[in-house]
Amino acid sequence: MSPRAFISFEMEDSWARDFLVQQAKDKSNDVEFIDYSVKDPFDSSWKTQCREKIARTKGTIVLVGKTTYKSDAVIWEIEETKRQAHRMFGIQINSNDTHRIPDGLSGFDVIRWNFDHIIRKLSAWE
């Protein structure tokens, strides 16, 4: 069983989160992804709930899209993941584009979208 992963993403890239979750189901992998999408204003109650969600995982996957680098929520989730000393890696969500890496994620692995590679990285978190 692969460890639970928190998914951090910019709302405009929710399609990538949906695709990742669907790929896990289609490939019959024992993978569990958790995300806590920002539906309400970015406030302290959101942070508290998000902090708890991250704590229940082994690490965070950051979906890196065109505007991810300037998302306050994603940057906060990266910092919270590091504060909790959890693992983390990023995924460039567009196969033909390399997007700017958000602050705090540099120095961590950022890979291209390849589901088998994603599963291998998650398995290393065991």
Rank of each mutant, 00 (worst) to 15 (best):
S2N: 15
S2G: 09
A5F: 01
F6I: 01
M11V: 03
E12S: 10
D13M: 04
L20S: 04
Q22N: 14
Q23I: 02
D30C: 05
V31E: 11
V31A: 09
E32Y: 10
E32K: 12
F33L: 13
D35Y: 10
D35G: 13
S37E: 15
V38R: 13
K39H: 14
D40Q: 13
D40K: 12
S44E: 14
S44N: 12
T48G: 08
T48K: 15
C50R: 02
C50M: 13
R51H: 11
E52Y: 09
T57K: 03
T57D: 07
G59M: 03
G59W: 02
T68V: 08
Y69W: 15
Y69N: 13
D72I: 12
A73I: 12
A73F: 10
W76F: 10
W76T: 11
W76N: 00
I78D: 06
I78G: 05
E79F: 08
E80F: 03
T81G: 00
T81W: 06
K82V: 13
Q84A: 03
A85T: 07
M88T: 09
Q92K: 01
Q92N: 08
N94E: 15
N94R: 15
N96S: 14
H99K: 04
P102I: 06
P102C: 04
D103V: 08
S106P: 07
F108I: 00
D109E: 14
V110E: 10
I111E: 06
I111V: 12
W113L: 13
N114C: 06
D116W: 04
H117L: 14
I119R: 04
I119S: 02
R120P: 00
L122I: 00
S123I: 08
W125M: 06
E126S: 14
